[in-house]
Computed example of a mutant assay.
Amino acid sequence: MIKFYSSLILFILALTSCSKSYKVTGVSSVSSLDGKMLYLKTSHNGQWVTVDSAEVIHGEFSMKGSLDSVQLVSLFMDDENIMPMVLEGGNIEISISNTKLTVKGTPLNDKLYAFVDKKASMDTRVEELGRKEAKMILDGVDPEVIKKQMAKESDKLMTEMNAYVKSFICENYENVLGPGVFMMMCSNFPYPLMTPAMEDIVKSSPNCFKNNPLIKEYVTKAHENMQSIQEYQIMQHNAEQQASMVSRPAASAN
């Protein structure tokens, strides 16, 4: 019986060890990557910290190691951020070509790149609207008709896109994908800001999301910036009103 329990403990420890180990294998059809060093980096206190690295040799590279926790990382070539991925236990497969970057093989990476693919498809539909508008202009369609139709189609597509991004973040509040995709959205702004959709995402989130250090810092800075913008707008409005009041007597005297 003692021998049985000893074997069971060793088996459980082996499973625990495997669950915390990762292996990354990558292939690249981009010839310029050969001989280059690739790095897995994670953001820590506003700085990129290297987690692992590998050299690309004949279009292939590999990395392996152990993890204390699942991390959202980025694959870098030198200082260039190539692609996001999740560093989690299991065999992670990366494919790099001139037209597409993919990561698969583990649950969160499969989920992340299903999201990336669908979001890219929606972005393509937005670009197609521009081409459609140009064609309508060349075909001599009335400008007012074009304006109304483009506004309607654009609003519909943006509503669909925002709903999809929100639902993905909400479904992944409690793992690294929720905060990670939220921060990707934030990177579209020149400085921290909060849209109504983003406010809604944070408001309905659990504490584990709200208290994520990156989310907490971003939301705090965004609210400070928005408060400053609002105060500036009020000052500007008051200044314009005062200028208008000063100019009225002069205009009346003339």
Rank of each mutant, 00 (worst) to 15 (best):
M1R: 12
M1Y: 11
Y5V: 09
S6P: 00
S6N: 13
S6H: 12
S7L: 12
S7P: 00
S7H: 09
L10H: 06
L10E: 10
I12S: 02
A14G: 12
A14P: 09
T16A: 10
S17Y: 13
S17A: 15
S19V: 02
S21M: 08
Y22E: 05
K23D: 02
K23V: 06
V24F: 10
G26R: 07
S32I: 01
D34A: 13
D34L: 11
M37S: 05
M37C: 04
L38T: 06
L38F: 10
Y39V: 08
L40P: 04
S43L: 15
H44W: 06
G46R: 07
S53I: 08
A54Q: 02
V56A: 08
V56P: 03
I57H: 12
I57C: 06
H58W: 06
H58N: 14
G59Y: 02
G59W: 02
G59R: 05
E60A: 10
M63L: 10
K64G: 09
G65A: 01
L67M: 02
S69P: 01
Q71P: 04
L72V: 00
L72A: 11
V73T: 01
S74D: 07
L75I: 04
F76Q: 11
D78K: 06
D79W: 01
D79H: 12
E80S: 05
M85R: 00
V86L: 13
L87K: 03
E88A: 02
G89A: 04
G90D: 03
G90I: 11
T99A: 09
T102N: 14
V103E: 02
K104M: 11
P107A: 02
P107Q: 03
K111A: 11
L112D: 03
F115L: 02
F115Q: 05
F115V: 07
V116H: 08
M122P: 00
T124S: 13
R125K: 12
E128R: 11
R131N: 14
K135C: 02
M136T: 03
I137E: 12
L138N: 09
D139G: 00
V145T: 11
K148Y: 06
M150Q: 06
A151E: 15
A151T: 14
E153D: 14
S154A: 13
K156T: 07
M158S: 06
M158C: 03
M158T: 08
M158F: 13
N162G: 14
K166Y: 01
N172T: 11
E174C: 09
N175G: 07
L177F: 03
P179I: 04
G180A: 05
G180H: 00
V181K: 00
M183C: 02
M184N: 04
M184E: 10
M184R: 13
M185S: 12
M185N: 14
M185C: 08
F189R: 01
P190I: 09
Y191L: 06
Y191C: 07
L193K: 10
A197I: 14
M198C: 01
M198P: 04
D200K: 12
I201H: 00
K203D: 08
N207K: 14
P213G: 08
L214W: 05
L214V: 06
K216W: 04
K216T: 01
V219D: 11
K221G: 00
N225C: 01
I229C: 10
Q230K: 15
Y232W: 13
Q233S: 07
M235H: 09
N238L: 10
E240L: 09
Q241P: 03
Q242K: 14
Q242R: 15
M245L: 07
V246H: 11
R248Y: 08
P249R: 03
A250V: 12
N254K: 10
